[in-house]
Write a protein that binds this DNA or RNA. Structure first.
Length: 313
DNA sequence: CTCCAGAACA
DNA sequence: TGTTCTGGAG
């Protein structure tokens, strides 16, 4: 028994197959034979990888592709982005329907950190990368592996689904991290992380396509054997229509068209049923704007006793 | 209605 | 640990 086994516990890798090497080789071979082509798979520039990863959070890859190209045309380097007006970056985000405008501010802030704290040269370790605003465990490992072929195994919803179905890994973050790391071949994080996420996106999606996609793990997959393709629970989101986040999006999009706007001018453009004293009135809008200001998206000031909002520059 | 390469904040 | 953050597509 190795030290790693003792540390992890006796049954930590009980779910993994006997011939781990064969399973690894099969996936890498499957990935390298044929996979989807994305522009960010053609680069090892950490800035480009970070842009792609932040855009990809909770957003379909197909929609990311056009935005990714346009973004890099507008701000080709991390220095360009750090020097940009925040309002322009947020404006770009909404124009390209990327959602979660917060992420535009994260990316802008992170670019400033790279320039200020690291003299323009990206850190290479997951721990250092996580110091960047908006970079958590997943994104840190993604940048470390895709840019530097380092870091640990990435764990996202795709990887969790694959590990749970194929090897019956229990639905807990620590179990997923451990299994993913044990499965990943040393020194091949770039290819491996791409491959296992590709598997989750192409062959082992919510609706499995094992035979159509020629899944390389059919011979050792528990789900394929038993027919039980249950996937880990992904928390269901509340409906978008009429939600607070829909209203936030409308505020940002409206302010994009104006230098600044007073409450009663902004309100009707956010909700048709806006009425200064009503349920959806000044108090409601002020509360919404206050959160947007806390998130660094909007600036508020007083003019002639009235509140005026604009995108933060 | 659901899904989608997560992270910040309380 | 739970809650919040967008919006397009099927």
């Amino acid at each position: 028994m190795t030290d790693a086994d003792a540390e992890a516990g006796p049954d930590a890798d009980a779910a993994l197959p006997e011939d781990v090497d064969a399973v690894r080789a099969a996936l890498v071979e499957w990935y390298e034979a044929d996979h989807r082509s994305f522009p960010w798979r053609e680069t090892t520039d950490p800035y480009r990888i970070l842009v792609c990863e932040v855009m990809s959070q909770q957003t379909q890859l197909e929609r990311v592709e056009a935005a990714y190209r346009a973004f890099l045309e507008a701000w080709p380097t991390v220095e360009d982005l750090a020097a940009a007006d925040r309002a322009d970056v947020v404006g770009f985000w909404t124009d390209h329907r990327l959602g979660y405008n917060n992420r535009a501010t994260y990316l802008h802030t992170a670019a400033g950190q790279v320039v200020e704290d690291y003299d323009g040269a990206f850190p290479e370790t997951p721990d250092e990368l996580q110091e960047l605003h908006g970079v958590g465990p997943y994104t840190a490992n993604a940048v470390a592996s895709f840019a530097f072929n380092g870091g640990n195994a990435v764990v996202d919803t795709n990887v969790k689904r694959v590990l749970h179905r194929a090897f019956d890994v229990e639905d807990s973050d620590s179990a997923f991290e451990e299994a993913a790391q044990r499965l990943m071949p040393d020194g091949e994080s770039r290819t491996w992380n791409n491959a296992i996420m590709e598997l989750g996106g192409v062959a082992c999606g919510k609706v499995p396509r094992c035979d159509e996609a020629g899944c390389p793990w059919r011979g050792s997959c528990r789900a394929y054997e038993t027919g039980d393709f249950t996937a880990p629970d992904v928390p269901t989101q509340p409906s978008f229509e009429g939600s607070r986040r829909q209203m936030r999006g409308r505020v940002v999009r409206t302010l994009r068209e104006y230098d600044d706007l007073a409450l009663d001018a902004l309100g009707p453009r956010v909700r048709v049923d806006y009425a200064p004293g009503g349920t959806f009135g000044r108090a409601w809008l002020r509360d919404l704007l206050s959160d947007l200001a806390d998130d660094g998206l909007v600036e508020l000031d007083e003019r002639d006793g009235d509140t005026v909002a604009r995108l933060r520059r």
